[in-house]
Design a protein around this nucleic acid. Structure first.
Lengths: 229, 229
DNA sequence: CACTGCTTGACACTCGGTGACACGAGCGGC
DNA sequence: GCCGCTCGTGTCACCGAGTGTCAAGCAGTG
């Protein structure tokens, strides 16, 4: 897995929070794996540059591939779609969120546990703002990318629903609460990201970690109700 | 605008709740308009039948068009994409929701106003369950259609955000509350639709109008807080 | 050296979607 | 009657995303 946020680093999977390390610094990877990693970053680098410059629709996969020095066919061996080259890293965020929720103590109130789960990817964004902010803006203002982003959010909601239901011993097919609570958490995430990436005075000014705290302060009375219907 | 839910009727735009009338019963429409209406319903009929039978990916636009007796080019003069032929009616739902919110008295609590707004399209679904349920299930279980559905939901959230901000005199670019509240309402809508369209015991059993009421009972303490941050 | 397995490029193909153009039906004016 | 107009449609050519297939290159291994 390559990391879109840190210039040219690779993520070590299976640990949370994930380690970010330079590809050239990884003697534990085989040569083949490092070559593969190199092609992937080359491809995303080329894509981000071209897309930010010319807009999503004006750039073809062929252009991205040849800019990175490979063929179009190879591009699709690395990424499932043209959108994925920008959005792929969101899949890891979902796994991080779920893991973050699972790691919280069982007696913690739902609002606290969900806040910490959702904060994990937001803090990563905040810590790499110079690189993350333009990418987020590109995603949110490009319809095709936004659509894929929404698909990822929906998948996150699904995962949080399962994790939350298991945590509370509820059946997500019967009770409304788990999916509703997960939906509220994702709505908070989305609102914060939208606000953070806004142009103008409010944009980028406030830290996403602080924003998500304010959002959850609003949601808490609904998330922590005793009477779970 | 054709109405996907009622077998072969046309919606009269600009009124809420919309009138549903048979195409053949519309002397106020010109011959050309009725012909256009006829082709549109023929297309959606053919599409729904083929897609439900063979799955979304296994059916080409050419098949749908020739089944309906027109050319592929003509299909795209009626619908912007292959998904649109199934999902297009959702655009009206968004307008209905916004209009429903705007129509509520200004002094009403946000939870009440939003509940009524979101209930409008859900009640329509519940009233035409025999026809609406299979369509909703087709959408939610087909990735490509689900993606378009999520895009529509996002648009609805945007509209509710604007309407709510105006209603409360808040700046949606600064305050988190409007977008967050709209997101909660959409999350409730989504949860209800998901639960309603579920297979098995819970599926279709409870009325969507009743379900949305229960969902909003959970959300109300967060939606109606005095201290709007 | 021969064998194996993996990655890649080249090529052909399907299908969603669009632009251009020509044809015919309906319609008003003369 | 005929002309010219508009509008909807079919045909055709085209672009770009995405996939299947195959042969070539190259690392590792005996």
């Amino acid at each position: 897995m390559s990391c879109l946020l840190c210039h040219e680093c690779a993520l070590v999977p299976g640990k949370a929070p994930r380690y970010h390390r330079l590809v050239s610094n990884r003697p534990d990877l085989s040569l083949a794996q490092r070559k593969r990693q190199l092609v992937a970053t080359e491809l995303t680098e080329a894509a981000l540059q071209l897309l930010a410059l010319n807009g999503f629709d004006a750039v073809t996969v062929d252009e991205i591939a040849t800019t990175a020095g490979v063929s179009k066919r190879t591009f699709f061996r690395y990424f499932a779609s043209k959108e994925d080259v920008v959005v792929q890293f969101l899949a890891d965020m979902g796994a991080d969120m779920r893991a973050g929720l699972a790691a919280r103590p069982a007696e913690e109130r739902p609002s606290e546990a969900l806040l910490h789960a959702v904060s994990v990817p937001l803090t990563v964004c905040g810590d790499h703002a110079e690189r993350a902010l333009p990418v987020v803006r590109l995603i949110l203002r490009t319809p095709a990318l936004l659509a894929r982003f929404l698909e990822h959010e929906a998948r996150w909601r699904e995962e949080l629903t399962e994790e939350l239901a298991e945590r509370l011993g509820l059946d997500p097919a019967v009770e409304l609460y788990p999916r509703l609570a997960a939906g509220m958490a994702i709505a908070a995430f989305d609102t914060v990201l939208h606000r953070w990436s806004a142009e103008g005075d409010a944009g980028g000014a406030e830290d996403p970690t602080a924003l998500i705290g304010r959002a959850f302060a609003l949601l808490a009375p609904a998330l922590d109700r005793e009477a779970v219907s």
